[in-house]
Amino acid sequence: MHELSIAFNIVELATEEAAKADARKILKLQLEIGSLSGVLPDALEFAMEEAIKGSMLENAAISYNYIPAIANCSDCCNEFETDDYFKVCPACNSTNTFFVRGKELNIKSIEVLQD
């Protein structure tokens, strides 16, 4: 249920940035959501519908870029895509692996309409 608080964070941050640019409307919003970010896509998209109401983001085109997680193997240096926290290296079966990507929870960009 924290997706709703995240949705409000998105609206707040985007609105602040748009106001800095003297914009009156946000036309596009690009989000980056890593698969390990702890955010459920469906829940976030549902929460966003509610959160944008009455804000500068109402009617904005929102794109959700879901980023797959990538792990790196410390034993054989293989880099591979996985959503599994055990992240077993497909090349050498090692579990001595670390995530290098997938925790993103970012506003990538906004497109605003200025006066």
């Binding site: 964070n9 596009k28 990538k108 605003v112 200025q114």
Partner: peptide, 20 residues
């Protein structure tokens, strides 16, 4: 507001949603 269309501007943010 007048009806001449305003400028659109893309702002590259790369900002963490939980940054606050």
């Amino acid at each position: 507001h007048d009806h001449s269309h305003g400028q659109t501007l893309t702002i590259d943010l790369q900002k963490n949603i939980l940054s606050k």
